[in-house]
């Protein structure tokens, strides 16, 4: 089982991801408050985290950098409405496993998740 987490302050976008993954093989969690990430009991079970770039209080790249430092084994995916800008503003020490445009389609999302979970299978 591949546990994934979506972080986005926008409830409508999270509900869209939920709909897109209905019936898929992924066990998905959804979080609207990025600051609450560290209190989640499922945190250590996650294999992939997908974070929106523009959120109140913290950007997706800042959050993913913290995640990289505390839980380096979790794959990191940035989702942004302006990927070009977001990537030029990346901290040099942050390594992303993938980046997706916002909004992203079900096909693009599943393709990304399959690729990343396949990499996990291949390396474990």
């Amino acid at each position: 089982m591949c546990n994934i987490l979506f972080i986005d302050d926008d409830a409508f976008i999270l509900s869209a991801y939920q709909r897109m993954l209905r019936g898929s093989v992924y066990q998905a969690f959804y979080l609207q408050q990025p600051a609450q990430l560290w209190q989640q009991a499922y945190l250590t079970s996650l294999t992939i985290v997908l974070a929106d770039q523009q959120m109140p209080g913290i950007t997706g790249t800042e959050l993913l950098l913290q995640l990289q430092q505390s839980h380096p084994a979790i794959k990191r995916v940035l989702i942004s409405g302006d990927l070009t800008l977001a990537i030029t503003q990346l901290a040099p020490e942050l390594t992303l496993d993938a980046a997706l445009p916002k909004p992203c389609s079900k096909a693009a999302l599943l393709d990304c998740l399959q690729r990343l979970s396949g990499e996990l299978t291949a390396t474990t």
Binding site: D10, A11, F12, S15, R19, M20, S105, K106
Partner: peptide, 22 residues
């Protein structure tokens, strides 16, 4: 339909009603 990968009335109404509210 392309974004959600689904053309069912259930998905269309769920998406549009949620969008309208937000």
């Amino acid at each position: 339909i392309a974004m959600y990968g689904d053309d069912s009335a259930e998905t269309i109404t769920l998406a549009l009603s949620g969008f309208r509210r937000e």
